[in-house]
Nucleic acid binder design. Structure first.
Lengths: 335, 335
DNA sequence: CTGTTAGCGCCTTCAT
DNA sequence: ATGAAGGCGCTAACAG
């Protein structure tokens, strides 16, 4: 059976209060006493019950990660990043998928908050921009950090990259290679990043004096299937583009497959480039040019900001982390 | 703020015990009373605290899903399957990645069990065959269900497909198409299924009187990279095989990519077949022949078996679910 | 059928 | 610097 704080206190010859103090790293415990307690904890392999701590205290040492994404690779990346930091800090993460288009979304989130005593929540796109979720969180007064939110930037700490600049840079690269007719596959309409990436693409085209062609800009859904379909459409056009820019890696893999199916050499007949949100591109299209979005690191940073906040009462939330390309910069909000 | 059972009892004009009875669907509550309580619950949007229930009762309405797998698609499949059933039953799932090769594995699991009050655990491969994890679970006397375990079949309920027969069937198919030199990529050595699939392949070859060639059987790791490497090795051999059997879909995608890179037509120059553990193949290699392993359904069935057990005190654990191809059969253990 | 009385394991005032 | 007492929200025997 699991051992309890009472057994530890007996073993160490102190009161449970003292053990609790040691557990929570509180001051005013004589070093010698602290050592004895720590020894007893180790000897009994004691682990405080999350349920009991949540019930008694105002902290639960649990945070939740919300997501609603079509890409298993993406989900795995954010889960891994968030968990990595939580383990370091002795926190537990609740991975919670949700449906941003559901009518019950607000109720679902409220239920999660009521059932589970959480210390904070991380929102990943497109949940980062869900008005219902944000409202429920604010109502419950729970701290939250958003990954790559598109709007209301000042209502919460956030972690993001500059999608527009990144898309612009990739487009510059393609143009630099001599491409003038470049296809673009837009991401899922629910994701704000989709539009930001499109904007960056367009801005680069304009800067290079290249006219847009409507049929070269196709809607996708951030998943393999939609990328494959859009790729096929463009690659079978009478005058097909010489390059295709996919807004994420799943769609890029789809385009690559379409090219292969049509017997086109990559990058001989058709160049493919785009965002690598989840390191999938490193596997599927290693020779191609991508902007690597450090998804795992974004989630890691989000967890850190959140947990720092619960430790210090919210002070550190005044920071935001900007990850641009491979450069990580940290800057203070104007606040 | 979250409302409590006490507020519900006040609103309904009954004692908290009665509310608790309604919550837990216990008998001996007058229908009229039950209705009044349910109304109050709905009106106050009351959700019982998981922490409080876990502390007070012997049930927590929480189970854990353990995994240690290189494939994000696989992880997502089992998470989705398990969660789907848990939501139906009002349970919460804790997704817990672990490292079966870690020296701290036993401690990690013991920690999970001590911190979280769980009603049961689902093990997915290769955790299903981890002696440490199984020992920790048995020590804690917690019910657990294993997905596709390789050994000690009677120590727990299990959910599985017949990997050997499936591999045999696929091989038969390839031979039926006229292939005599078939490459085989073995799965991760930690997974029992890897060996079972190899055995099925070999048995089919033997039955058809085809001699094995050592260089046509290559070790893989169930991930894209290893499949890609093994595929390249075989496709660049002086006398390359006419077909390749990949032990899972990630490796199959790797082989497919290798074939494309080498300018080989699929399935013209090289046939590719194998297991589709995660529906990845449906996307990446739709025209190819695969055995679909219903991973999501396996996890769903595992969750059902586990929760049924907690409801009925373990009786239903005498059942096992066999999913073979698209046929689902349920049969009683000899027990 | 319903209510009363104790805790579950821990944190949190308050004393000392 | 340490301990005693009370309670978090709920379930579990007991009475009625």
């Amino acid at each position: 059976m699991r051992s309890t704080i009472r057994e530890v206190s007996a073993a160490a010859g102190v009161s449970v209060t003292t053990v609790s103090r040691v557990l929570n790293n509180e001051p005013y415990v004589k070093p010698a006493t602290r050592r004895r307690v720590e020894e007893a904890i180790a000897r009994l392999d004691f682990r405080p019950s999350v349920a009991a701590r949540a019930l008694a205290g105002q902290r639960s040492f649990q945070i939740a990660l919300l997501y609603d994404n079509p890409s298993p690779y993406y989900i795995y990346s954010i889960q891994t990043g968030a968990r990595a930091h939580c383990i370091e800090r002795g926190f537990r993460v609740v991975f919670q998928e949700c449906d941003v288009t559901s009518a019950d979304l607000a109720r679902d989130i409220a239920g999660l908050l009521a059932e589970t005593h959480l210390d904070g929540v991380i929102l990943s796109p497109p949940v980062s921009d869900s008005a219902e979720v944000i409202a429920a969180l604010q109502r419950s007064n729970l701290p939250f950090v958003r990954i790559a939110p598109g709007g209301s930037l000042d209502i919460s700490p956030r972690v993001f990259i500059d999608d527009e600049a990144a898309a612009e840079r990739i487009t510059d690269h393609l143009v630099g290679l001599g491409h003038r007719r470049i296809g673009f596959i837009i991401g899922h309409p629910d994701h704000v990043a989709s539009n930001q990436r499109l904007t960056g693409f367009r801005r680069a085209l304009a800067r290079h004096g290249i006219a847009e062609e409507a049929e070269l800009i196709q809607q996708g859904l951030f998943d393999f299937t939609s990328g494959h379909a859009a790729g096929r459409r463009m690659l079978t056009m009478a005058r097909r583009p010489s390059a295709i820019f996919a807004s994420n890696d799943d769609m890029g893999a789809g385009v690559l497959t379409a090219a292969h199916e049509l017997g086109l050499a990559v990058p001989g007949d058709i160049a493919i480039a785009g965002f690598d949100d989840t390191d999938l591109a490193r596997l599927v299209w290693p020779p191609l040019t991508t902007i690597r979005q450090p998804t795992r690191e974004l989630a890691h940073a989000a967890a850190k900001m959140l947990i720092d906040a619960t430790d210090t009462g919210g002070q550190q939330l005044d920071f935001e982390l900007v990850i641009r390309g491979s450069t990580v910069a940290q800057q203070r909000l104007k606040s």
